[in-house]
Nucleic acid binder design. Structure first.
Lengths: 208, 208
DNA sequence: GGAAATTAATCAAACGATTGATTAATTTTG
DNA sequence: CAAAATTAATCAATCGTTTGATTAATTTCC
């Protein structure tokens, strides 16, 4: 009769991620997680060993998901510019579809107290970074891109997106604007993609 | 004879800022602050009323410092591009000279639990944003700049700098690299300024 | 000027509340 | 029945804050 299989384990993960995103790791108590997930407090330790175990599990799951999304863009026989544009589109979509997690990740990246987590995030990022690095470097070598500071260009692309997620008021000053509203999110996505594609096109391919 | 006036109040502020930057607000205890500052725990509440009072005081001091640094760049009779370049230089220098605080500010901006603080930071930022907005908009209106998505360009400038501060490994993959090392910091500063000035010049002034 | 009164600064100790974690008992499941 | 899942109760530790007392400095008063 009741097919509603309540997977407490997953419920804990979902609740914890939501709370960690909203109030931070230290700012979230195990009791809050238990309450929000509908599970008993002891279940947290039963399944994940500790509060930190929950956090690590969330990060691992997410990072694994990101890695699997790393498409074989570099295999396609398209121009370097076209590749870069696809990467930008993919990045903007991914990050703006997971704004809460992205915020949490960046928060963790700015702390020095959990070095293992810092390194884990850093490593996960570096894969994607190397992909972009290769695309731009190839473009420079085959003459289709200007000689630029590749790492700085990457910082610009990633930094722009992160900035939009963390401080959307910088882009939209409208007060009743909400990134969680699908309509508003779509607008921001399109603007971000258009801007970054235009920016990279002009900056990388304009002959001086 | 003894001019070593130990201002406990200031010692608390200094220690708290250091700790808040390193381990976050929730991650720092009042006992840590007391120990690090050499003050008695009760002094924190004596001077600032509460732990949050310390935090608010730090933020207010810093934000006031930033506002006072808001130079009258817009008054100078120089081109829009020149103004923008000066703003970029000022921003990079300011933020890279206060990396720890900048990290903390962005961390606070990504949380939803202290709305008053969020609004305070947002307001402080919006002043600087309006300055840049005006410079670019003026440049567009007088025909020296291309028609671009002004808010997105601002997000790019600020996002790039923040990204460098929070994830410097993206720019420098060298393992023994340290943003606290003055020599390394100088290198990053110069690269960031050169990149952003070059980027904005090409993107805003290239005729299509 | 010097005793008396007042204020500011500092301290050790303790407060109640909450933290993450664990126990032992119970229920559910296969 | 045995293993797995779940529960309420409890643990020691730590949290931010408050207390009452003490010292040092300043002000008031005669």
């Amino acid at each position: 009769m009741k097919t509603e299989k309540v997977d407490k384990r997953q419920a804990i993960l979902d609740a914890a991620e939501k709370l960690f995103c909203e109030t931070g790791y230290e700012g979230t108590s195990t009791r809050q997680i238990a309450k929000e997930s509908g599970a008993n407090m002891a279940m947290i330790n039963y399944y994940f060993g500790s509060k930190e175990g929950v956090f690590v599990e969330i990060m691992n799951e997410r990072i694994a998901g990101f890695a699997s999304q790393l498409k074989i863009i570099n295999e396609d026989k398209i121009s370097a510019l076209e590749k870069l544009h696809r990467v930008i589109e993919g990045y903007v979509n991914r990050i703006l579809n997971n704004t809460a997690f992205h915020k949490m990740m960046h928060r963790e990246l700015s702390l020095t107290q959990r070095p293992e987590m810092y390194d884990k995030i850093k490593d996960a990022m570096s894969h994607n970074m190397q992909l972009i690095d290769r695309i731009i470097t190839d473009g420079i070598e085959d003459g289709s891109f200007n000689k630029v500071d590749v790492r700085m260009v990457i910082a610009t692309i990633m930094g722009t997106i992160t900035n939009i997620v963390i401080a959307p008021h910088k882009v939209i000053s409208c007060s009743n604007f909400d990134l969680n509203n699908p309509k508003d999110k779509k607008i921001i996505k399109d603007r971000a993609i258009a801007h970054l594609q235009d920016l990279t096109t002009v900056y990388l391919t304009t002959k001086k």
